[in-house]
């Protein structure tokens, strides 16, 4: 459902991620984070992994976070989240916290902190069934340290540690993080995209409301790392969904739902074209990627129809 101009003005205005941070121009991740915060209440504790969001928003002595926030290492975000959640439960039982207060826990991590370094802790926390929401901001490489490849870098992308030349760039396919989360049999998994803000906010609300772990994978266009014009980051986000490279779906108690059904997908080349990280791709490479995307999309559609 497209709500465009007017309904977006009815979103609450106070920012929990305030202005003055040092994000790059056109950062899709900051936009996604702000949208996430529009959907959560003030009774939220944020557990933030190292990454762009931590670096740009907490340069001493200033801070951008207007809600309780704790910075953790790459590898233990989910572990710290589960610790805080358990401590809160105990304190509530002992009567230190009022019984009617319901505090939510929001763990944030980049794709490196989620898919590579912090995967073990995340898997553990999901398996133990802690009541928290994990949000992964996927900008498809380690952007903060200067565009190094991660497990979530897509096939063919050129990064500083997988440069195009002798090879095609990144030689492996993107790690399917939502599928890994779904494999843990948790109550709620979803993918979202800041180009579709209402969908994103709705999913964050759902993810916070469920009892038990929830996982949301948010596609975050990064003009700096993708080498595309900063004013087009939202457009690339939209292209990603409309070309079925990054479909929007949710998985709720064992059932898949497709949130954005694309009747006529646009060609993948529209999405790849214009991004500096894909500029070396030849026609047969694009056809190869298109074929892979088509197969993935068909498989997802089949799952959603079941």
């Amino acid at each position: 459902m497209d709500l465009s101009v007017y309904a977006s003005r009815c979103v609450e205005t106070p920012e929990k991620f305030s202005q003055g941070h040092r994000g790059c121009v056109g950062c899709g991740e900051v936009l996604a984070l702000r949208q996430v915060f529009k959907a959560v209440g003030r009774d939220t504790i944020v557990i933030n992994a190292t990454g762009c969001m931590e670096i740009i928003a907490s340069t001493f002595p200033t801070t951008t976070w207007e809600i309780p926030w704790i910075h953790t290492l790459f590898e233990n975000t989910a572990a710290v989240a589960s610790g805080i959640e358990t401590a809160y439960k105990v304190m509530k039982r002992k009567g230190i916290y009022p019984k009617d207060l319901s505090v939510k826990f929001l763990a944030l991590g980049g794709d490196g902190a989620t898919a590579d370094i912090g995967l073990q802790a995340l898997s553990g926390a999901m398996e133990r069934g802690h009541n928290f929401l994990y949000v992964c901001f996927d900008n498809e490489a380690y952007m903060n340290t200067g565009v190094q490849r991660s497990g979530a870098t897509p096939y063919g992308a050129s990064t500083t540690t997988s440069p195009a030349g002798k090879t095609i760039g990144q030689v492996t396919w993107k790690k399917n993080m939502p599928a890994i989360a779904i494999a843990h049999n948790i109550p709620y998994v979803a993918t979202a995209n800041p180009a579709y803000p209402f969908d994103l906010m709705e999913k964050v609300k759902k993810g916070q409301a469920v009892e038990g772990p929830a996982y949301i994978h948010i596609y975050s266009p990064c003009p700096t790392g993708w080498r595309c014009p900063p004013d087009l980051s939202i457009r690339y986000g939209r292209y990603a969904t409309e070309s079925c490279v990054f479909p929007l779906f949710e998985y709720e108690n064992g059932k898949y739902t497709l949130n954005k059904d694309i009747e006529k997908p646009i060609p993948v080349s529209t999405y790849l074209k214009g991004q500096g990280r894909f500029r070396h791709l030849a026609e047969q490479d694009v056809a190869y990627i298109q074929n892979h995307v088509n197969n993935d999309w068909a498989a997802l559609k089949k799952r959603c129809q079941e």
Partner: peptide, 16 residues
């Protein structure tokens, strides 16, 4: 047909 009423409704009473 902008959908503002649908979005702002706290009880999802208005459908679109």
């Amino acid at each position: 047909g902008c959908g503002s009423c649908v979005f702002i409704c706290p009880t999802n009473f208005i459908k679109m």
